[in-house]
Simulated scan of single mutants.
Amino acid sequence: MSDSTPAEPDEAAQNAALQGAVIVGLQPGQPAHVLSEALRYAKLLGAPLVVVHVDVTRFVTYEDPDGYVHSAPIDLNIDAGAAEFEEVQKMATASLEKEGIVWTARQLVGDPALAIKQLANKIDAQLIVVGTRKRGLGESIREFFTGSVAARLAHRQHRPVLVIPQGEEVPDEQKDIWTE
């Protein structure tokens, strides 16, 4: 079962159906084992799975009392977030359609850690699963300024956070982790 971001009146009903879910944050190009591990834990916990993509090119303008979030783009000429969400949905559908698990896809906007935390609160999630970033100088600089989503989630809410490595192990004898 897949849906996209719910319409205003449907959100409360869908959130009620997703109580106790496992949330997995995904970005296009992320290794498939991030989703596989989230699926494994959702099955172990007997919980639905919520595949989340956070559009960082948009920001929250206001939130209605019923929880519906209104957003606006940072750049009016860019709609990259919609294309990324579509790619994440396709990846999730290909991986999950035959798994026999209740799942849905949601697109959130704004700061990834805060957006995922808010959704986790709304559905009383049991677990949040995120992947690590790719190694590289550019990624380490970005993380220096924005912070690690996993670390920010771990320090700003009470749910367990499972961090899945990229899969590219750095040998113990290698002194420099980022070789760019």
Score class of each variant (00 low, 15 high):
1 M>A: 04
2 S>M: 03
8 E>T: 10
11 E>N: 03
13 A>F: 05
13 A>C: 06
17 A>M: 11
18 L>M: 15
19 Q>N: 09
23 I>R: 04
24 V>Y: 03
25 G>S: 10
26 L>E: 07
27 Q>P: 03
28 P>A: 12
31 P>E: 08
31 P>T: 07
31 P>L: 04
33 H>Y: 01
33 H>P: 08
36 S>D: 14
36 S>W: 03
38 A>N: 05
40 R>C: 04
41 Y>C: 00
41 Y>T: 02
44 L>P: 01
46 G>N: 06
49 L>R: 12
52 V>A: 15
53 H>K: 07
53 H>P: 14
56 V>R: 05
57 T>W: 00
60 V>M: 04
63 E>G: 02
67 G>E: 12
68 Y>T: 12
70 H>F: 08
71 S>N: 15
72 A>D: 06
75 D>K: 00
77 N>G: 11
78 I>Q: 14
80 A>C: 01
82 A>W: 00
88 V>D: 00
88 V>Q: 05
89 Q>N: 06
91 M>E: 15
92 A>S: 10
93 T>M: 07
94 A>Y: 10
97 E>N: 09
100 G>F: 07
100 G>M: 08
107 Q>V: 10
107 Q>Y: 00
110 G>Q: 06
113 A>C: 05
113 A>Y: 03
113 A>V: 05
118 Q>P: 04
118 Q>M: 13
120 A>Y: 01
120 A>P: 01
122 K>S: 12
125 A>V: 08
126 Q>L: 13
128 I>Q: 03
129 V>M: 11
130 V>F: 05
131 G>M: 02
132 T>R: 10
134 K>P: 04
137 L>I: 11
138 G>H: 06
141 I>M: 09
142 R>M: 13
147 G>K: 02
148 S>V: 10
148 S>F: 10
149 V>Q: 00
149 V>P: 03
151 A>W: 03
152 R>A: 05
153 L>G: 04
154 A>P: 01
155 H>A: 13
158 H>I: 14
159 R>M: 13
159 R>V: 01
162 L>E: 07
163 V>W: 07
168 E>G: 09
169 E>D: 12
170 V>F: 05
170 V>N: 03
170 V>D: 00
178 W>Q: 04
179 T>G: 11
179 T>Q: 12
